[in-house]
Design a protein around this nucleic acid. Structure first.
Lengths: 169, 169
DNA sequence: ATATGTGCAAATCCTTTGCACGTGC
DNA sequence: GCACGTGCAAAGGATTTGCACATAT
């Protein structure tokens, strides 16, 4: 079995935050009678090693750099745990695959997604007025809002003109 | 083969509109070198016979009342045609299945969806502020907005209290 | 007449699950 | 030690597709 811990480099400036989050994850597991297995911790590290949004499959590939024995099933079984512990957020953009994102900055609920149909990236922007929208619209129906999601599909001007998206990397 | 046309009842007050829409569909087909097959027209009629949002599977069941030989494949192949002809809208609520809705009232783009988690219904409400938001946010990123979507999950107060949802029927 | 469309069944994609084996507590 | 987790492979559900036959134009 091949296994290593995530490297701590100067560029990895969020290492301390990740450590704190990993402890929160361990605490969540312990508090719910769940075991801190090497697979769960590896999956957690892989998730927090991703800067951008990622899919379950991308997470699997990333985990396997840390521990190549981790199965796809464990990834799918661990994702809901990380979400329940509020360390991960699911981001549904209406695509076939679900996207996820580590929740470093506390509970960021009021965010809107802008999905670029050209560079295929997801930008998240603070939208504090969203909950007001939700209440306004729900109250007309006699319903109580639970959550709201605002999603903008947009296209990249420079991609349409030059064939290259400056953000695509 | 069992086949019949949609009944024209007094309750079916939108029949005239449906007829006009059916002609638009035929025109779309003809204009794109596609054939007006009995299956496509039956699927169209079934879609316009649905008052609410529906899934592909519900549409199939509804079509088969009109013509029980229509296959699931034809339903899935016809859905994009109706969407391309702007007579149908796809409504993504983040569930596993996609939902669809006939587009009787022109091109209604600025609508928010309120999904009740109790009665499991989808309400659509006009939300003109959405396009303003889309432009504002997209321009900050150098993107041009294409579409925007506001989706609110809500729960039914009376269902939580009395166990019955007044809207459930 | 012939290109387009159809039904069927199998294939696809992402995700979940049953089961025998492994391992934290 | 024993319950909880794991990997594997097979199942699952929604949608798509290859193919031989049917049919609008």
């Amino acid at each position: 079995m091949f296994r290593l811990t995530a490297p701590r480099t100067a560029a990895n400036s969020r290492a301390v935050t990740t450590d704190a989050a990993r402890e929160k994850f361990r605490a969540y597991l312990a508090g719910n009678g769940l075991r801190a297995t090497s697979q769960r911790l590896a999956i957690f590290d892989a998730a927090f090693g991703q800067a951008e949004h990622f899919t379950a499959d991308q997470l699997l590939r990333h985990v396997r750099v840390i521990d190549d024995s981790v199965s796809r099933a464990s990834v799918y079984r661990t994702l809901p745990l990380m979400i329940a512990s509020a360390l991960l957020r699911a981001v549904d953009i209406g695509a076939d695959e679900k996207f996820y994102r580590s929740n470093r900055d506390g509970t960021a609920t009021q965010v809107a997604q802008v999905v670029c149909v050209d560079c295929n990236r997801i930008f998240e922007i603070s939208a504090p007025f969203m909950s007001w929208y939700g209440s306004t619209v729900s109250s007309k129906l006699g319903l109580t809002p639970q959550s709201q999601r605002l999603q903008v599909s947009a296209h990249c001007d420079s991609f349409r003109q030059t064939g290259t998206c400056p953000r695509r990397g």
